[in-house]
């Protein structure tokens, strides 16, 4: 179900103006689309953070009402967060069409405990966290679950093993590995000499020569 977002249009642009918007408790955003063009928006920070918090994946379809006008169906395309405090600083929305398929990524969630980790000493390693897909926005799901319960040591799950939900076409390479159960490699610690690293371009020689000249 698409979430409703009440947005206000903004005219000012640039980092200074965006920072002013953030200080006012809002989040700067943009909406791009064929019909609506490029719209600069500002959203209520608290409401938007609550919306994000209640979704596990990043594929969120929203109905955006700009200044109380007609709702535009859009997909949350990109979310920028602050490096340190994790607060949302910007959101990018992409208008979606009922007839046109969209190209996006869906999160892969592994379910179950593999036999290789419970019975043996294997370690489950997930190498792929997102699948590239193509679908209509109506068929879009937040995540795709992959059952790894039957995996023994040395087994793996590839993209071709994933059953795509109805209406979704997986575009990722079928041979790519999503997860595997491996025995952790035991590294033998080699005691190396605590010497100095080798110099590139023989700078040391030049330094010694300079010292001798002094």
């Amino acid at each position: 179900m698409a979430e409703l977002i009440k947005a206000m249009s903004r005219t000012e642009k640039g980092s200074t103006a965006c920072n002013r918007v953030r200080r006012a408790g809002l989040i700067p955003a943009v909406l791009n689309g064929e019909h609506c063009g490029s719209l600069k928006l500002k959203l209520d920070a608290h409401d938007f953070e609550q919306l994000i918090k209640h979704h596990t994946g990043t594929n969120i379809v929203c109905n955006i009402a700009v200044d109380g006008s007609d709702e535009i169906v859009a997909l949350l395309d990109e979310l920028q967060v602050h490096t340190v405090n994790g607060k949302i600083i910007h959101a990018d929305f992409k208008e979606v069409s009922v007839t046109k398929k969209l190209h996006t990524q869906i999160e892969v969630i592994l379910t179950g405990d593999p036999v290789g980790t419970t019975m043996d000493q294997g370690v489950l390693e997930q190498t792929m966290h997102e699948l590239e897909v193509e679908c209509l926005y109506t068929a879009l799901v937040e995540s795709i679950s992959v059952d790894v319960t039957d995996l023994k040591v040395g087994d793996k799950v590839s993209v071709e093993d994933v059953v795509a939900p109805n209406g979704i076409t997986i575009l990722s390479d079928p041979d790519l590995t999503i997860a595997s159960v491996n025995i952790p490699s035991v590294k033998t610690e080699v005691e190396e000499e605590d010497g100095e690293p080798e110099l590139i371009d023989g700078e040391e020689v030049a330094e010694k020569a300079a010292e001798e000249n002094e």
Partner: peptide, 27 residues
């Protein structure tokens, strides 16, 4: 054995600046 480079261009470097937040390696 602590980590250290195998080869370096200069044995000694200046203290350098470390202003700003991490732009890479932050996820």
């Amino acid at each position: 054995m602590p980590l250290m480079p195998k080869r370096v261009k200069h044995r000694k470097v200046m203290r350098g600046s470390r202003k700003g937040n991490a732009q890479v390696g932050n996820t």
